[in-house]
Design a binder for these strands. Structure first.
Lengths: 113, 113
DNA sequence: GTAACATGCAACCATGGGATTGCATAAGAC
DNA sequence: GTCTTATGCAATCCCATGGTTGCATGTTAC
């Protein structure tokens, strides 16, 4: 993909975040962490249908996207939400919506003239 | 995955939308459609590095997620943004952030008591 | 009607992603 | 010290996905 006028920098920053959120299991993990607060891997696994290892991999994906972070407490590993990174995705959507409205405005003006 | 107390319905609705947005090529398509307005397949292909067929497939993915819609104009197929579906993703992120804040609030109260 | 253009359809290929199983290691509990 | 619990690591499997090429079909232009 060539560098394009339409904010390519933003695209390549936001896409991985969306990709990380674009899986039901991961989105459910984000939901649980947001409502129940920081949780260990085994606790997160207990509420899910898949294996602990699968959950671990999903958490790694979320961590790579900057959506969660971990800290060690004794023998367990606690994961918590990193809501700042979700802002990247949210503002991106707002940005797109806004430009779309502007495009509609231009079209309307064009038709009227 | 078991039906869980944490808004599973919402999760399974929002995940496909995030998944559709989680690809650089597709996100770039969304960006172009938002800034330039409705465009045909060939026009969209012209600004991209991949094949027309690849672009078509990506548009199909976006359409399945409800993010774009198409209409025929003569021999060409015009694609335009469907910003309503992006609201689903945006409100989901807001929802998660809000619950996270509440969780922090509960934690703070717990520590203080 | 014929040429050029826009798109559709189908087969194919390579890679990555989601999930599993089995075993190893580290840290509390007693 | 031993047992149990929480996690890490690695190999493996299956399938979805992103991309391609080649050819067919429909539509506009002249």
């Amino acid at each position: 993909m060539l560098s394009h006028s339409t904010g390519w920098r933003e695209v390549s920053r936001a896409a991985p975040v969306f990709a990380a959120l674009g899986d039901e299991t991961r989105l459910a993990l984000v939901a649980r962490l947001s409502s129940e607060g920081p949780l260990s891997i085994t606790r997160l696994t207990a509420g899910s249908a898949v294996t602990r290892q699968a959950i671990t991999k999903h958490l790694d994906v979320l961590a790579t996207a900057g959506l969660v972070s971990d800290l060690r407490r004794g023998r367990e590993r606690i994961w918590e939400l990193e809501p700042r990174q979700m802002e990247v995705a949210r503002t991106y959507l707002e940005h797109v919506s806004k430009r779309w409205d502007e495009a509609l405005g231009r079209l309307k003006k064009f038709v009227e003239d």
